[in-house]
């Protein structure tokens, strides 16, 4: 719906124009800075690759025979700083690229193990609370619990539980997770022999808080830790997954 049309005074008009020009100016500066950053990165990358290529030269070994020479002050310091700055920029940009790749890998993996939650969102019963925030309902907590236990058996149960938690929407997330934990407890209690030891231990809790207590971990640490595990899964680094899981389960379990 369009806002109601309103005549603007000259003063209001000028103010609006100033705001728009301010936005355009900021946009232009951001883009110009980004272009400069891109150009600088390309320049540094080219120098780094040139140094790499020259360093790997297969020429015959040459005698390492040096002499001293008078140069302007700070010549050597400037040479050192140029190399250090190049190495630091490369290390940072590689770090940023790796970080972006990790985020993407983690996001895709987490979406996969939490999609059963999204499948259960009840869009018809969606309402807003008194603050205008969406209140989400789910068709069946029992179904989400069952799918958490049964789906993606190639992924360990703790990570599947995390996937369910992350898949839940913000509204009453912990309360909804408590309900799912109770449903999972019912499922494993009804047929304990049907599930392996890890599943029974992970799912036999009547709240999410109890589940975290069984791992001897607070929620903040848990979320950070599970981020690492899902990143390792996303990158298919199963040795790392195993190492992290062993450490996660080093609590009372």
């Amino acid at each position: 719906m369009y806002p109601e049309h309103k005549e603007l005074s000259q003063e209001e008009f000028d103010k609006n124009i100033d705001q728009v020009l301010g936005i355009v100016q900021r946009n232009y500066e951001e883009k110009r800075n980004q272009r400069m950053t891109d150009e600088m990165l390309a320049f540094v990358n080219a120098n780094y690759e040139n140094a790499r290529r020259k360093s790997r030269s297969t020429e015959q070994p040459r005698k390492y025979q040096t002499k001293t020479k008078k140069k302007t002050k700070n010549t050597k310091r400037n040479c050192i700083i140029a190399i250090v700055a190049t190495a630091a920029i490369i290390a940072t940009s590689v770090g940023l690229v790796n970080s972006a790749k990790n985020t993407q890998a983690r996001r895709e993996f987490t979406e996969t193990i939490s999609e059963h939650v999204d499948d259960n969102v009840n869009y018809l019963d969606y309402q807003l609370d008194e603050y205008g925030r969406p209140m989400w309902y789910y068709d069946s907590m029992a179904e989400i619990a069952r799918e958490t236990i049964d789906e993606h058996p190639e992924v360990d149960i703790d990570t599947r539980i995390y996937g369910t938690y992350i898949g839940l929407k913000d509204y009453q997330r912990d309360e909804n997770m408590d309900k799912i934990m109770r449903e999972m407890q019912k499922i494993v209690e009804a047929n304990p022999l049907e599930y392996d030891e890890n599943v029974v231990r992970a799912c036999n809790h009547n709240s999410f808080t109890d589940y975290l207590a069984s791992l001897n971990i607070d929620k903040e640490t848990y979320l950070a830790y599970m981020k690492e595990i899902t990143t390792a899964y996303g990158n298919n680094d199963l040795d790392k997954v195993q190492e992290l899981l062993t450490s996660l389960n080093g609590g009372d379990r």
Binding site: T66, K70, K71, T72, K76
Partner: peptide, 20 residues
């Protein structure tokens, strides 16, 4: 102001020895 630096003459020019 000047300083003395270690250099090496190579086929494609003179290089400052920054470090070992």
């Amino acid at each position: 102001m000047e300083e003395e630096v270690k250099v090496i003459e190579l086929d494609d020019g003179t290089y400052v020895v920054d470090d070992e």
